[in-house]
Computed example of a mutant assay.
Amino acid sequence: MAEFLTIGEPLVVLASQDKDMSLDEASHFEKFLAGAEMNVAVGISRLEHEATYLSKVGADPFGDFIIEAAGKVGIDVSHLKKDSKYLTGFYLKELVGSGDPAVAYFRKNSAAANFEVAELEDVDLTGVKLAHLSGIFPTLSGKTLETFKLFNARLNEAKILTVFDPNLRPVLWKSREKMIAVTNELARGSQIILPGINEGEILMGSREPEKIADFYLNQSDLTHTVVVKLGADGAFVKVKNAKSFIVPAFKVKEVVDTVGAGDGFAVGLESALLEEWPLEDAVNRACAVGALAVQSQGDSDGYPTKEKLIEFFNSDERFGHCY
């Protein structure tokens, strides 16, 4: 098994090429590989780390595209299976001049939503150093929630570093109350938590980064680090029984597409942790990949290779040679 592992719902995104036109008006779309956990796997692979992705797709053209595209960027797709009983999920995304684009999902009862516990039986965790977990996969169905919990427990038993990104998708939940309760419950199972400041306000009622961090540090003996994503203001970091600190964001010339920025942040952090970087440097890399992500269309198209990341750091006077 690769050193990095994630489980999720792979998607195809049909991204509008008609700027500032609603999805019903737009007529030109481009196809991209998507899905939050897949975005992270793509970014990890681009930074020269082995990544395995667990899930399944439909036996349809979108499923074929996902497997082929993921394999082309170096992701281990041996555990990305086809299921002829269900279809592959996809979504449409606006192209906007500013702000967050509107999206329309077509993913109900997808192949990934029918991923079951029994399909984990042949997964060998030997060699895995870090697992990326997202709050999206367990929302898809009762099956995926059960699978997520068992998978998380197996990771903890194997003493593998677990990173949890809440990645709230209210449209996938039956109620706001259930979303909050289940997401916070799932967060207890990971060592590092990556809430955005807006997610923190929803999940525990405050926009104060330190209060958000303290909430997750105090609710679980397992959680030792919380990194609160502050968008254009960078990130707030707190380690249990240690002093907190802020890592500033990078200036961006033009924001093209904000979708995938949070996943890019996870890519930067987790790739650096795999390389055993100090935490503050790892969060610097997280901010850098997030900044690069918003400057490209496509959920993961802006994620850099190691050479591009070095070039980006070298162009910033704060960091010089640091990458």
Score class of each variant (00 low, 15 high):
244 S>G: 05
194 L>C: 07
168 L>I: 13
169 R>A: 06
186 L>S: 01
254 E>A: 00
248 P>V: 05
219 Q>H: 12
226 V>A: 01
236 F>R: 03
179 M>A: 15
218 N>E: 14
243 K>P: 08
178 K>A: 13
179 M>N: 08
148 F>D: 02
142 G>W: 01
168 L>Y: 07
254 E>M: 06
202 I>R: 08
215 F>S: 06
187 A>M: 12
148 F>Q: 00
249 A>F: 04
235 A>P: 03
133 L>Q: 06
157 E>S: 14
174 K>L: 12
164 F>E: 03
250 F>I: 07
149 K>H: 00
222 L>Q: 09
152 N>E: 05
236 F>A: 01
212 I>G: 06
212 I>S: 07
150 L>W: 05
229 K>S: 01
167 N>A: 06
200 G>F: 12
143 K>N: 09
186 L>H: 05
175 S>R: 11
153 A>N: 09
171 V>Y: 05
199 E>Q: 11
188 R>Y: 01
238 K>Y: 01
172 L>F: 14
202 I>L: 14
246 I>H: 12
152 N>F: 13
207 R>A: 14
161 L>R: 07
137 F>L: 11
131 A>M: 11
184 N>M: 10
163 V>P: 05
205 G>F: 08
141 S>F: 12
240 K>E: 02
206 S>V: 08
169 R>T: 01
243 K>I: 11
197 I>R: 08
149 K>I: 09
183 T>L: 11
182 V>E: 14
237 V>Y: 13
160 I>F: 07
203 L>P: 12
199 E>V: 11
233 D>L: 13
185 E>D: 15
210 E>D: 13
205 G>N: 05
253 K>E: 08
128 V>H: 08
130 L>P: 11
254 E>N: 13
218 N>A: 12
252 V>N: 07
224 H>V: 02
186 L>Y: 00
174 K>W: 05
231 G>A: 00
170 P>I: 08
188 R>L: 10
250 F>A: 04
245 F>N: 02
183 T>V: 11
